[in-house]
Amino acid sequence: MTEQALDAAKIGDQKLRAAYEACRKVNAEHGKTYYLASMLLPPAKRPYVWALYAFARSADEFVDSLTAPDPAALQAWGNEFLEALSGGPVPQDPAAVATLHTVRRWSIPRTHIEAFLESMQMDATITGYQTYADLEQYMYGSAAVIGLQMLPILEPQTPEATARARALGEAFQMSNFIRDVGEDLQRGRVYLPQEDLDSFGVTREALNARVVTPMIRELLKFEIERTRRLYAFAEPGIAMLHPTSQDCMRTAFTLYGEILDAVEQIDYQVLTRRASVSLPRRLSVALPAARRAKKARKADQQVALPVEDPERV
């Protein structure tokens, strides 16, 4: 499967192929929904998605470790990558190697990488955000630019897709923030805006008590509804993508959105439990999408074939 994708992408260099395979493994292990969706893209595009995921995951690991966060290492790693983008030595880290190739292949703006690294550094020192506007600044680098990095690969058919991609990245991240409140508390972080906590009479001490009170439940309901509005704005952007990209993003859209449903199904007990979309449900969404994606790829290949000249003998 990996060999087919790398061959389709015309990636022949053995070091590059090994780097992309390492990225695929990271994606398959840590981002199951994301990986499942990536498999609905044409094989030639899949390696680039794996690279971008692995790059984001690698940066995240530097500051999200519960035992040994290392923001200095993140700074050095990020600087090395940016230097390579400017023509410096190619890094050794497989995620950086593959992402460097991906950025050049798809002309992904350097500013997207810089914004992402800046937000990752914020996780080293910032443990909360006063307002939603403050959180949006963080999410621009940590989530919105992920959507913007993906966009060239997905081949938007109209400039309007850009704003929708940004919103979808934020919706995905807000879904994670809501699901992971309890886990983030272990790192001393709260990503729900302080103004929202204050509005519902919720304190950090109350969150750390790990009991979902009526006030916490109402806070989570509020955040879920806000996030669903992001999904609603982002949804029309799927139809603005190349037909061979739409089933991939529709699957991700559906399954990430259902994280919010899963939070409701466990009665908002996110302080002690992790809400998740079941494997049978993921497959029930992905399998029909895979059939549609295959038809879309076949139709695209037929359109791309040269028309035979009827005058030719």
Rank of each mutant, 00 (worst) to 15 (best):
M1N: 13
Q4W: 07
A5T: 12
A8M: 12
K15G: 14
A18G: 11
Y20H: 12
Y20D: 04
A22H: 07
C23D: 02
R24M: 02
K25M: 07
K25P: 01
E29T: 15
H30W: 04
L36F: 05
A37S: 14
M39H: 07
L40K: 10
P43K: 12
R46F: 00
Y48Q: 01
V49A: 13
W50G: 05
W50K: 12
L52R: 07
F55P: 03
F55Q: 06
R57H: 01
A59W: 01
F62W: 06
V63W: 02
L66D: 00
L66A: 06
P69L: 08
A72Y: 01
A76T: 10
A76H: 07
A84H: 00
G88V: 09
G88S: 08
P89Y: 02
L100S: 08
R105W: 01
P109H: 13
P109Q: 08
L117H: 09
E118I: 06
M120V: 04
Q121E: 14
Q121M: 13
D123T: 13
T125E: 12
T125M: 09
T127I: 05
Y132S: 11
D134V: 07
D134L: 03
L135S: 11
V145W: 04
G147E: 00
Q149W: 02
P152F: 06
I153F: 04
P159N: 06
P159G: 09
P159H: 08
T162P: 00
T162R: 15
R164Q: 00
A165S: 13
Q173S: 13
S175G: 13
S175D: 03
F177S: 05
L185Y: 00
L185R: 02
L185T: 02
R187N: 01
V190F: 01
E195L: 07
E195V: 11
L197M: 10
S199Q: 14
F200D: 02
E205N: 04
V212E: 03
T213D: 00
T213V: 07
P214H: 11
E218F: 10
L220G: 14
L220N: 08
K221Y: 03
I224D: 00
E225L: 10
R228K: 13
A232D: 01
H242A: 15
P243K: 12
S245W: 02
D247Y: 11
M249W: 10
M249R: 05
T254S: 13
Y256C: 12
E258S: 14
I259S: 14
V263D: 03
V263M: 03
Y268H: 15
Q269A: 11
A275W: 05
P280M: 10
P280T: 08
P280V: 10
A289M: 06
A296Q: 14
E308Q: 15
E311T: 15
E311R: 14
V313R: 11
